[in-house]
Every structure is written in C-alpha cells, then in structure tokens.
Design a protein around this nucleic acid. Sequence first.
DNA 1: CTGAAAGCGCTTACAG
DNA 2: CTGAAAGCGCTTACAG
Lengths: 336, 336
Amino acid sequence: VKRPTIHDIARAAGISTSAVSLVLNDQPGVSAATRTRVLDLARSLGWHPSAAARALRGGGAGTVGLVVARPASLLGTEPYFMQLVAGIEEELGPRHISLVLHVIGPDSDAEPAVYPRWWSQGRVDGVFLVDLRRNDPRLPVLAGLGMPALVLSRPQSARLPALWVDDAAAMRRVVDRLAELGHRRIAHVAGLPDLVQTTQRRYAFTRRARARGLTDTTTVTTDYSAESGQAATRRLLTGPRRPTAIVYDNDVMAVASLRIARELGIRVPAELSLVAWDDSALCRYVEPALTAVQVDVSGFGTAAARTLLAVIAGTEVDSRPYRTPALVERASTAPA
Amino acid sequence: VKRPTIHDIARAAGISTSAVSLVLNDQPGVSAATRTRVLDLARSLGWHPSAAARALRGGGAGTVGLVVARPASLLGTEPYFMQLVAGIEEELGPRHISLVLHVIGPDSDAEPAVYPRWWSQGRVDGVFLVDLRRNDPRLPVLAGLGMPALVLSRPQSARLPALWVDDAAAMRRVVDRLAELGHRRIAHVAGLPDLVQTTQRRYAFTRRARARGLTDTTTVTTDYSAESGQAATRRLLTGPRRPTAIVYDNDVMAVASLRIARELGIRVPAELSLVAWDDSALCRYVEPALTAVQVDVSGFGTAAARTLLAVIAGTEVDSRPYRTPALVERASTAPA
DNA sequence: CTGAAAGCGCTTACAG
DNA sequence: CTGAAAGCGCTTACAG
C-alpha cells in the first residue's frame, strides 16, 4: 500500500518526472497527447501531491491553526466554537486547506509556546486568535515571529489585523431597548474579567446606561459557567437594590438563572427581564423563551477564514468589525 | 523572518549538520560539550524540526484527521462534537500531535473522497470515523487504502478496528427503568434512520420492551433537529394510543418537546415521562430538569485517541465497547 | 517538446 | 568522536 509519486507516473508514461510535474501544475511545454496520458495516469493511480514535499519546497503547509484554551466542560455547553469552526470550514474546505485545532486547558501557559513551535515546524501558514485578553502575551509572540495571524476580538493596539463581532454596538442596542421598556435598574452578569470582550461589553453597558440617565447599574464578572451565573444572579436578586433587568454574557448563565428567579418567586418577565448573549436552542426552548443577542457565528467564521487567507497571501488587511448582532426579542423581556 | 534550520545551528556551532541531527535526536556519538552547545543554540534560535522534512523522510505527518458531515446549525446545538474533540486533544496535545478537522455538509458525496486525498497527500497518519451509516461507503475506501482508522460506532462487519459507546446497553437500562416505573406504552423518537447508532438503539429499545412484556412500543425517526422532534412528539401525543413515556435520541429534541407537552396540556412528569440522550446544560436547567442518558463523551474521545495512536503504531487493536453510559434521573420521569 | 540537476530540511548508514 | 553523501517527493531554472 505505497502512495503513488510522480516517479510512478513518469515510469508508466515513459517520460521524465519534470514533464509529469509540468502537466500536473498546468505549465506549458508538454504535448497534448502526453498531457492527457499523464492526467489519466494520475487519476487512475489516485495521485495527489505530497503535502510534505510541497511544503518543503516552500509552498506553505496548506493549513491554518486555531488554539482554544477553555475547559472541556465549557466547550461542551458553548456552541460558539463549533459554529465558528463550521463557518471557517465553509471557506477552507473548497480550497482544500485544513484546519489544525488544538484544545488546551484554560490555565495553561502552553498557548504562547504553541505558536513558535507551529511556525518553526512549518505546521500552519497562519492562525486565528480567540479569547483575547488584556495585555495578551500571545500578541508580542506572534508579532515577533512575523507569523500571519488574525485576531478575532477588537484589539487595543493594532499590531495584528483583526476582525471582531461588534459587542459594544450590540450592548448599546440592548441597553436602549431595556431603557425603552422603562427599566431603570439594570445589571450585567459578565464573563471572564480578563477577556477584552468582557471589558468592552462592560464599558458599553455602563456608558450607554449613563447616557440614558440610568445610573443604577451593576456589572459582576463570572467564569461563564452556569453555577457562577446562578450565584451572581442570586446575589443581585437578594441584594438591597434589586434590578428589574439582567443582561448575561452567554446563554447558559441566562438559562440557569431562570431557575434562580423561580426559586426566589420572582416572575419572568413580569418582575424581571432577562437577556442572553449568543442565541441557541437553549434560549428558544426554555420557558419563557429568552430574548437574546443573536450573533451570526458561522458567518463570522467564514469571513474570518477569508480574511486570514488574505493575510497569509500578503494582502494588506484593514482591521474592522463584522456585522453587528441582532437583538431577538422573545418572552423574557417586558416593560418594567 | 526566516525559520532556523539545523544548518544554522551547525554553522553557529562550527560542526556538521549530521552531528547536530544526532544531538537533537538524542543519538550517541557526540561529545558532551558539543551536545550542550547544540542544545543551547537550538533553544536560543527557537529551532523546531520541520514537519515537512520529517514527514518527507517517512516520519509520518504527526497529525490525525476527523471529518464531520453535519450541517453547521446542528453542530451548534449538539455539544457532542466539541466535547469529543476536547477529549481527543487531551491525549494528542501532550504528544504534540495535531488534529486536522474538516467539517462538510451533510449531503455531501465529498467525504469518501477526502480520505484518498489525505492519505495520498500524506496529510494525516490516521482518521476517526464518526456517524457510521449502514453500508457505509467510507469503510471499503479506508480498507482499500490501508489507511489507519478507528470507527467510533459499533460496526456491523469487522474490517476496521472500532471503539463505541454501548448504546444498546444504555437503552436497555432506560427501558428497564421505565418499565419499573410502570410504563406500558413507551415511544422512541430516534435520530437519522441511516445511522447505525439509530438502528442499534431502536433494536435494543424494541427488543428489551418485548422482553419485559411491553408490546405497545413505537419508534419514529427524525433528523435530530428540534423541529423534527417536536413534530414527532405532537403526532405521538395526539395519536390514538398516547404513550406515557418517550425516549429521545438527543437532548435538543427532548427539551423542545417539553413545550409541545405543555401546549397540549399534558403534564410532565405526572402524565408523561421524558428521557433525553446526551446529557447537557440544556437538560439540567429546563423545568422540569430532564432525566438523561449521560455519556462521558470527553473520556470517550481520550480513549479513542489513545486507540487510534496504537492503530497507527501498528499495534493489533481489538474492537470493543467503551463504558456504558449512566442514566441520570431528574424530574422528568415518574411512575406512570 | 523533453530530460538532468539542484535544492527545500532532515536523518541515517557509511567512512574516516 | 565527526563529516560527506544519499534520499524522501516535488518544482524549477537550465540544457538540449
């Protein structure tokens, strides 16, 4: 079970390997008859160019990489990454470019080390960077390597090209809508405090609320888990100045918190409005169905892949926001 | 920004590339002093072996592949794949083996073509096969190529090694428990009819029910979507011989069907018991929380990765079931 | 229109 | 203890 090479084709066709190579790369300099013979032989032998040989000659790896540093448990509950990957593949698949995925623990120092290794090994031609943190150590590493990369958050500095979901704009819509509904005391149950995404949502939340005259706002941070969301919710709802509306940074926390409200005898949406971030089956099928910020994750992934390929090709790419998410209103929000 | 090679190290150390290679591969034949010098230089230059050069010399690609043929929308709702990938990575990551992931449409004829290409390109050293179907066209393709592969379902024939979650055993537990609770008319809302997994659950369901004297059973198949699960549930609950218990082949359908029962004024669990397959946040946080078949997907992925690496290494591997899933009882099941 | 040669980065017998 | 050479599969100037 040996893999066919251009040598096998050359021998079968009775010509040199260079002639075979010219045909297979659609270069001129070979007669039509020979061309046909070679193409037929390649097909019948099931020949495909050796990825290793091509890469060694400088053709690139034909792959892009994605490192995800989250615990396995969270990955299961958050549909985000799988949808992102599916969207990325929509662009890569037809071009026969592969996605190399690496999942590591959340507290691992290993991530910054992955990039020098991948780059030095020539394993990938470029990478996506997710879950950007403040003073993210990966940024200088990638910039130092000169490795093509696309940041999938809005970066604070512009060392690397970026494409991001406009969380700030979405948050302003949410606050506007809640204000319209008459809510005056609103809270934000945010995600991991280190993530740039969290800072940006939080900032937009507070700022927009102020701008609309809502000064009684709170933000608490969590680790995105259902349990931490529930704990934060319980504190908010049993505290001195109970909010009439809560915005959650993912769907799992919002859904899990419905139970807390019920336990405490607080009716949703009559006494409390809830908004989830990242729409999913979870939001649609709980009772009451949750109002949610709906991000087109898969489309975002496709756009990201297209952009990263441009970066790899050496095109100058402008950092820019992707489409602003929609706010889908369901049964969990009502007038205050 | 050029990547360092052993030539750079050799030049810096003033020795030959072969000596460098011996050091970097921990082979004898080099003085301790030279060894230290070389290792220090490699570290300071950030050298890592070229994946392409190693692969070309016959060292293998250092990657394994996984093709997922499901629509992006379903991938988002089903945590299964991401958990599987996380589990796989737990084994691969420390060994610096990468996972090449390919997501394609569900109706694509492209999947069987991926394997010859990957193999001929030398892109992966082996692959996982998921969502096995009856007379699956991928089996003869892989066997013909002599490509290392691990089937993650229970195959009907033994052409390739396999590791699977024992769905049949889990289904027997579910039926036993429902029978103990006094249910006599039970239904099974299954997944895609073409999947071997569906056939096996269905068969186990019917057979065990018979064995316990329950002859009034129905199985209907779906496409795993919330909508198809709801439609099936509506038909069952408004039909002539209404079941008192329904087993669903995933969690999304079970959760979505809670709403149908509510609409029809059928109380869960007083008048209808529901069991979900694949436990998730969804099941835990809806009201009532769903009784579910809890599969250790991440652990399964880790075991699968270990097994595939053994297959690639040429070890004779026995096909075998992985741990039988547990039945976690929550508030959606009660005496008939 | 076609072939021989060099080289991508690495490893491994083989000489010395 | 160390170096020169060959070869993995491919592409690309360079000869003819």
